[in-house]
Amino acid sequence: MKLRESVIDKSIVQNFLVDAVRKFSPYCPGDLSMATPLIRTGIVDSLTIMEVTKYIESCINTSLPVAKINRESFRTLEALSDMLFDFIKEHNLDLDIDGLKGMG
């Protein structure tokens, strides 16, 4: 399913990212909240960041600017959602929220 920016609300982006982090992190706790620190808890490491970034890029069909991939964006899921939501809005992008299903 592809969603246009105009119909996206932030919760869709948030759910999309929760699934992505759960998929790629080897260390995701059961009670992952939007405010859980991602880096400090080891939920994401350098490899997870690369995989999640690559996955996001495939689902929005464009590259994220290097400046967007930083410790602030990956601090929490909330911060990551804010960054992605704003980027999608700013560039009028599609988000393929079914991307994970094609990744086995």
């Binding site: 880096i39 400090r40 490491d45 350098s46 960041i49 400046a67 991939i69 930083n70 410790r71 990956f74």
Partner: peptide, 11 residues
């Protein structure tokens, strides 16, 4: 290099 920053290669 703080552990948080070390993960971001372009940084």
């Amino acid at each position: 290099l703080p552990e948080d920053d070390a993960m971001f290669f372009s940084y």
